[in-house]
Amino acid sequence: MAIKIKLFANFREGRGKIVEMDYTPGMTGQDVIDSLGITAPEIAALIVDGVDGKVDAMLAVPIKEDGYMAIFPPVAGG
């Protein structure tokens, strides 16, 4: 099974819009960003399987077997 990582804004540079990764039991958001070369302080917002929260907390949440993550750098507007 693979999980889907959705990337946005400058996180797409050199990585693309969507990255698929092989699922391994117990893998977390931290494992994902480590493999993508993204550090926690670069992330402003993070969604794991449809749930958002504080970045540090969400990075520790196990991803579902067919799950997804959405990772955002600091963005805003209005």
Partner: peptide
């Protein structure tokens, strides 16, 4: 030096919100 005013907004404009607002439902 701010990630929004020095990065996201100059590069993408306010339009950068479309995806993040959409992903949050």
């Amino acid at each position: 030096e701010n990630g929004v005013t020095g990065g996201g907004l100059p590069t993408y404009g306010t339009a950068v919100l479309v995806n993040i607002i959409n992903e949050h439902g």
